[in-house]
């Protein structure tokens, strides 16, 4: 059981973002993906989810090429929280979350009571159950982000690919989002891969890390081996200071 990429080369507009990248995301793991702007993090997520074709190489879901899976089968296994959603949604928050159940419906059996229950339960997990009847368009940016996370929870895939899941969230909601991500892996044996920008978080929640430098180079491995001061300073081209609090180590930017 894994979502693995083999000899993956990603290009955008003729520019090579990463070359011959191989790594495997397995149940129970939490991957943090870091890299400067435009280094191919979103492209990687789209390729892993089977939504875009890599320039070379392949992505395998449980030893089967993700490109040949049926649309719904793939969506039952892999869920994506896109960074940007050009949505125009006129319905309620509950309607919005319910759409996450689509991969589990058939032409003859659309959303039933079980799906509504799953959607409500997902809303409770992001502490927005009281917003079920609100129109999605009236929500704040942070609330929308949490509702989008709830939609993904309702989808209930085995692999969660999160593109900047912390955007628009206040500090306590950031912690909550990261806790939920870790719990998905630890308690339900799912796998999470998320793009993060803050260098403080990955060392605390990620078991594994992937650094993309955007010029063809990439480092993948366990968090302890990859998230070193030297690696992160080279990646972002700025000085870092080590920070430790209650036996948790991390880094903060040095000014």
């Amino acid at each position: 059981m894994s979502l693995a990429c083999e000899n993956l080369t990603l290009e955008i507009a003729g520019r090579v973002l990463c070359r011959d990248l191989s790594f495997s995301v397995e149940p129970g793991q939490v991957w943090g993906v870091l890299g400067p702007n435009g280094s191919g993090k979103t492209t990687l997520i789209n390729v892993l989810a089977g939504l875009a074709q890599p320039a070379r190489g392949s992505v395998m879901l449980d030893q089967r090429p993700v490109a040949v899976l049926g649309d719904k089968l793939r969506a039952q296994a892999i869920g994506v929280l896109p960074q940007h959603e050009e949505s125009e949604f006129w319905g309620s928050v509950l309607d919005y979350v319910l759409l996450g159940r689509y991969p589990h419906t058939t032409v003859w059996r659309v959303w039933g009571h079980a799906d509504e229950a799953a959607a409500l339960s997902a809303l409770r997990q992001v502490e927005l159950a009281g917003f079920a009847a609100r129109r999605y368009a009236t929500l704040s940016g942070g609330e929308r982000q949490r509702v989008r996370a709830a939609q993904l929870l309702a989808q209930a895939p085995r692999y969660f690919l999160l593109d900047e899941p912390l955007q628009h969230l206040d500090l306590s909601r950031q912690i909550q989002m990261l806790d939920s991500a870790a719990a998905l892996a630890r308690e339900r044996n799912n796998a999470v891969l998320m793009v993060l920008h803050d260098v403080l978080w990955p060392a605390r929640v990620c078991t594994h890390a992937l650094l993309l430098d955007g010029a063809g180079g990439a480092k993948a491995g366990t968090a302890g081996a990859v998230l070193t001061q030297a690696n992160l300073e080279a990646l972002f081209g700025c000085k870092l200071l080590p920070a430790a609090a209650q036996a948790q180590a991390g880094f903060v930017p040095a000014l």
């Binding site: 939504l51 649309d71 719904k72 969506a75 869920g79 896109p82 689509y102």
Partner: peptide, 8 residues
Amino acid sequence: TKARSLGV
């Protein structure tokens, strides 16, 4: 993107 990721 989201629609495709949901299997549409």
